[in-house]
Design a protein around this nucleic acid. Structure first.
Lengths: 346, 346
DNA sequence: ATTGGCAGTCTCGATCACCGAGTGCTAACT
DNA sequence: AGTTAGCACTCGGTGATCGAGACTGCCAAT
């Protein structure tokens, strides 16, 4: 493979034509179809020469000697970086998305589930949605419920009606009355702070009753560590769509992918690396670190819940996907999700 | 197909041998292997005669003329009803289950997720777990959080640390202080009741302040209707296991199944029909009402959370499964789940 | 630089023959 | 009557062969 020499105009057009045609038909593209459908002014022989060059520079490949050309990962990369034309989501799709979100439950979880559902539907791929990063989310309300004498259920209501719960065991028995008092106090002190800020504000609590203070320290410590080590949950939907793609007729490919989807941890770390500033991020084929994604592409972006609180949303599909359309629809659903979340109450 | 004439002892043994061998090898079973492996005293010709009878009565079928026999749905049914021998879960499996549950989070959702995970793992099939029916669950704690002036978040803590949340919109603005007072009152009055009982106890609230009472009515109404229409959530895990079974090499079969799993509603109605009294319920192939399950079997049972509160747990796999083993393991995980839930605090 | 022509390569599908597994049937045997 | 050996027959699976078709790469002409 030679160095990534810059492509002249005609090579770019040919690469673009190959990618476009291949994503639609799924068949390797030959010089004759290219000449007939896209380059009537040129002969197939000329195109053959150009194709040979594109193979030499690593943008295209041939499945076998007497077949047409298909894009390599590098070809797709060049396509999405330089050749892909912006596409707007169709009115039909926009209507679908709007209608689906209208029927969504008024809770963060419900909305995210709906987002995963509708995104997989309109892109015909597997959708991925991470819950928003809560460590930076402001606390609206704390509630303490006594389960057993030494066992307390902590309920945190965060921005956007996000509810986090956890059980903590205390060294000594505490009544519901005590807990309610502590909750009331905590609510006054910590309201509007992020979980991260909690620990640093501990001293603001005042040194009144040492015992109570120790319990509160214990609770806050539990909250912060819990938030920190909490693994990101990745919702997904639409595996059924993937089964319709011809690249998955052999189930071997699917097996690795399903493992990735069902265990989630590895996916979570990938999705967390999506940068908030970027618009839409595309990872193609072997650019993925996971071997299960060797022949898949990711199209990812972020949605916004409150000012600094974001999550990742996107799709995973075969490298041979209609990138322009998928990008447009991922963006559409991301914006719609942000909108709905914004109106959820703060 | 003739009527289901009762099978004599030898026919039963042959049917049993066919099912056993077929579930292991996946290959149609011929008269010669049967004679060699299971019936050394008999000649293959004799077995051929018996096999022909079993085909005639509908317990076996031949994929084609010169192939061995495989069980029909009826054959499997007879097997699980009369021939299947009780199998105990191996020590290894029991240890796996125990260890997995030890690392489970101390919340109902977490435990159920873990149950789904471990069940799919030990049965190598897709696991199904429904959340427990909450309509009969007792309320331990009610919390009201003001989101916006006219918007209230209701948090219900039910038996077993089960947390239900919902947003209600009120006709007039209400402060957090008012809500806290109402919550305190509600907690005194409704503690220990089921959501169903709530509406009938409304009159116990006393006629003190009409306005406040109206709000409370509104809240309770919202709680009860919400609980009633809430669709059962069905967790599943282990689709990756299914891909390893040879019956799913052609993805067409899988597609219908995935649709069923991902939409959930139809599955929920199936799972809700599992009777609590029964031990383990098995539904084989076309006995299923869903066309997507034509070639699958369900092995289902219930787990217990509190006295009357139960959920369904089980697996879905190809009709050709090792029923004895799967039944044992479903039962094992069900009991383990019940145990862990019982120790969760009440 | 482009093009027409042409020989060469490779896949895919159809056809065919063959092997082997397994059956059903009949006649003999206990 | 039930059981068995023997045998002819059926049928799916495998592998080989062959031709058609699709493209290519290369070369010589434009």
């Amino acid at each position: 493979m030679l160095e990534p020499s810059p492509l002249d105009e005609r090579k770019q057009q040919i690469l673009k034509a190959v990618v476009s045609d291949y994503t639609v038909t799924g068949m390797p593209v030959g010089s004759q179809v290219l000449a007939a459908k896209y380059f009537i002014a040129l002969s197939s022989a000329t195109i053959r020469n150009e194709l040979a060059d594109l193979v030499g520079t690593g943008y295209l490949q041939q499945p076998h000697t007497s077949a047409g050309r298909i894009p390599t990962d590098r070809g797709y990369r060049y396509f999405v970086d330089f050749l892909m034309e912006p596409e707007a989501a169709s009115a039909t799709v926009r209507r679908t998305v709007r209608q689906e979100f209208e029927s969504a439950p008024r809770s963060v979880d419900g909305i995210l589930e709906k987002a995963a559902m509708v995104l997989s539907q309109v892109t015909e791929n597997v959708s991925l949605v991470t819950a928003p990063e809560v460590s930076e989310s402001r606390i609206k309300h704390i509630d303490l419920v006594s389960l057993e004498p030494q066992s307390v259920l902590i309920i945190l209501v965060l921005e956007g009606n996000l509810i986090k719960q956890q059980v903590v065991h205390l060294e000594r028995a505490t009544t519901q009355e005590d807990l309610s008092r502590m909750a009331a106090m905590l609510n006054q002190k910590v309201k509007g702070q992020t979980a991260d800020e909690l620990s640093s504000r501990l001293d603001l609590l005042g040194p009144d009753r040492a015992e109570q203070r120790r319990i509160i320290e214990r609770l806050i410590e539990s909250i912060t560590t819990h938030q920190a080590q909490r693994q990101t949950i990745v919702l997904h939907d639409g595996v059924r769509n993937l089964l319709r793609h011809p690249e998955f007729v052999e189930v071997g490919r699917l097996e690795e992918l399903m493992e990735l989807l069902e265990q989630g941890a590895q996916l979570a770390s990938i999705l967390q690396q999506v940068e908030f500033e970027k618009d839409v991020e595309i990872v193609i084929g072997r650019e993925n670190t996971s071997s299960g994604l060797r022949e898949c592409s990711l199209v990812l972006t972020t949605y916004k819940m409150a000012d600094r609180i974001r999550g990742t949303i996107g799709v995973i599909g075969p490298t041979r996907m209609h990138y322009g359309q998928v990008v447009a629809r991922v963006r559409l659903v991301s914006h719609a999700t942000s909108d709905v979340l914004a109106h959820l109450g703060n």
